[in-house]
Structures are given as C-alpha cells and as structure tokens.
Write a protein that binds this DNA or RNA. Structure first.
Length: 342
DNA sequence: CGTCCTTTGAAGTAG
DNA sequence: CTACTTCAAAGGACG
C-alpha cells in the first residue's frame, strides 16, 4: 500500500538545520500527524478533526451548514436564487464572489464577507501594509458586472493605476501593498553611475505603484485558516515546520474539504480578475525569471524534480497512497518518521 | 536587513 | 506540450 521503499530513510541534512528524530516525533504527535499515518496504513479514512466543525473560513460553508434556514438563506444563496422562481441560478459573473460583494446597505447586517479569513488572527486574505495597517477587502465592496465594467472603463487593461488600490470607501484592497514592502527592484546589480540615477528614479516610480499580490490559491487559503490552530497545538512557531504539517494535513483532507478551498480560491481569482483586469502574475515576477533572479533556487536533491504541478509524478516519487498522504522527507520532520509504519 | 526555509497551486517562461 | 520557475503566507533562522 504505502511504498516505503520510495522514501529515503536518512535524516536529511541541509544547512545544519536538521531536525532531530525526537523533535520530529514529538512534532507529529503534537499535531496529530500520527493519526494520519495510522490511518494511511490502515487504509481508513484519514481524519482531520476540526473540533468546531463549523468551517470558519467561509460563510458559504458556515451558512449552508447550520446557520441558515430555507426561509433565511445566506446572502450568497439569496443572490443565487431567482427571486421569482426560487430556483437556484447557476453562477454568473455578476455574483462572482459571494464573499466580498455587499451593497452598502447590507453592510453591518451580516458578517463581513471576508470574516472567514479574519477571525482567528484578525488578518485578511491579502495583508495591507499600505498606510501602516491592514485591511480585508472593503466591506462595502460590491463586485458585480457594473463595477467590473466601471473598473474596466476607468483603468486601462494593461495597467492598474495607484488609486485603484482605493475603493470608494477609501480602503485599499487587500491584494495591494506598497511596492517596497516585499518586492525588490528588478534591475541588475551591474549598475553604472550613469544609470544609478535613472534606476533611482525608476525605483521611486515603482514605489509609487502599488504591488498587487497574487490571489491566494486553495492551499494558501487553507494555511491561512489553519496556521494559528497548528501553532496553538504545538510549540513550534517556525513557519517552515508549520507549513509542512499543514501540507500533510492538506493531503489528509477529504475531497469535499479540499473542494471548499478550491472553490474559495476560484472565487478569489475571479474577484481578483475583476478588480485588476490588466493584472498578470508576470507583473510580480519583477524581472526575476531565470538569470535575472533575485531569489534563490535551492539545488535539487537527488531524484527530486519540480513536482509542484505534477501530482502523479509526485506520488510516484515519494510514495502516496490512495488517501493522498504523501510525505516528502525534510529536515523538520525526518524521513524515518514518515517512512516507518507506526 | 534581506533571504531562506517549507508547503501547494496558479500562472508565467523557455524549449 | 512539457518542464521548469516564481510567487502567493508565515515567522524563525541565518549571513
């Protein structure tokens, strides 16, 4: 069932940060991965018990689960139901994200559409550092066809102007941060004295432009929600370790559970597209693609390909049973733990 | 201070 | 089309 042979049994050494077996064991126990492994071995359904069962991430889920009765449907369902027939309508662009759109009149009547991302840490999906504070999507933000066309007409498709970061409420969109927050200038380090001035000017101009971040994918949304919980469950705070745990928990989720996040991510992207019609992920490459890179690329390990987009390959390489509990050994959670039957 | 680590997924580039 | 790269989040570690 579980191809143990496919897993390295050696502790991974890298950068002198190798985690100890004991700590790894302890870690797994703390976060419940133990249970996952057991389930994987016994071919039972992996259980990631969310104590509260109410999904804090999404009103969609929360509402549909328990908070609303047929006579009192959640806002997004209200939007989805034909008022005349009462028959649910298929999704369409105008109600692209039931999480964000709220007409001004409805603000305050129902939980914030992004409350699903705010509750635990008070942080929105997209952190805003502009102005020194963070905001979720504006509460009064209404993204519908009219707004979409408004945005499109106001801004050229290839460029989102700085003021675009401000909604009519004056609250910047969470996906936008000051450009100098994280991204660096893209120019190479072969700067001459002549070009330094120009570079500085470009730099300044660039800083004026808001940095529109990528929309979060399903896993990122999941991490955002679950991180605090995992941190609370174990003593670890190091994000790399936490992320490993989260990665494993992600794989242990049922298809239905994951589907929630995929759906949320899809809506995220759609909203992002409507808010920033001309935006491309390329914009955030900041000239870092191949050669011009500012960022690392850790050397691949033996047998390690880039399997991020190739789950099948990933499964074959590292061993993944039908439950999806693949475990790649790493320095934080040593491979013997992952490979051993417990 | 800036980058790395670590995860998955989306989207980009290169061949 | 396939393979590879970057970047989203997060915060400690490290040079």
């Amino acid at each position: 069932m579980y191809p143990r042979e496919g897993l390295s049994l050696g502790l991974e050494e890298r950068g002198g940060k190798t985690g100890s077996l004991a700590s790894g064991l302890s870690l797994l126990q703390q976060v419940g991965c133990w249970q996952f492994s057991l389930n994987a071995w016994s071919n039972k359904v992996p259980v990631v018990q969310h104590p509260h069962h109410v999904h804090p991430l999404t009103p969609l889920i929360t509402y549909s689960n328990e908070h609303f009765t047929p006579g009192n449907p959640p806002p997004h369902l209200q939007a989805d139901v034909d008022p005349k027939t009462g028959i649910p309508r298929p999704p369409h662009p105008s109600d692209i994200s039931p999480y964000y759109p709220l007409s001004p009149g409805t603000v305050g009547q129902i939980p914030h559409p992004l409350g699903w991302l705010v509750p635990q840490q008070g942080q929105p999906v997209y952190p805003i550092t502009t102005g020194g504070f963070r905001h979720p999507y504006p509460t009064a933000l209404t993204v519908n066809a009219s707004m979409s066309s408004l945005l499109s007409s106001r801004f050229p498709p290839h460029m989102v102007p700085p003021h675009h970061s401000l909604h009519t409420t004056g609250i910047p969109h969470p996906a936008i941060v000051a450009h100098n927050v994280k991204q660096e200038s893209s120019h190479s380090d072969i700067g001459s004295l002549n070009s330094s001035k120009q570079d500085a000017k470009k730099e300044e101009e660039k800083k004026k432009q808001p940095h529109i971040k990528k929309p979060l994918n399903a896993f990122m949304l999941y991490m955002k929600e679950m991180r605090a919980k995992v941190v609370a469950e174990c003593t670890l705070k190091e994000s790399a370790a936490i992320n490993q745990i989260l990665g494993r928990r992600w794989h242990a989720l049922s298809r239905e559970e994951q589907a929630k996040y995929y759906e949320l991510a899809r809506k995220e992207r759609q909203l992002h597209m409507q808010l920033y019609p001309g935006w491309s992920a390329r914009d955030n490459y900041a000239g870092n693609y191949q050669g011009k890179k500012k960022k690392r690329k850790r050397e691949k390990q033996a047998g390690e390909g880039n399997d991020a987009n190739t789950p099948k390959k990933c499964r074959a390489l590292f061993g993944l049973d039908q439950l999806g509990l693949w475990c790649k050994p790493c320095r934080y959670i040593p491979s013997p733990i992952l490979g051993e039957k417990i």
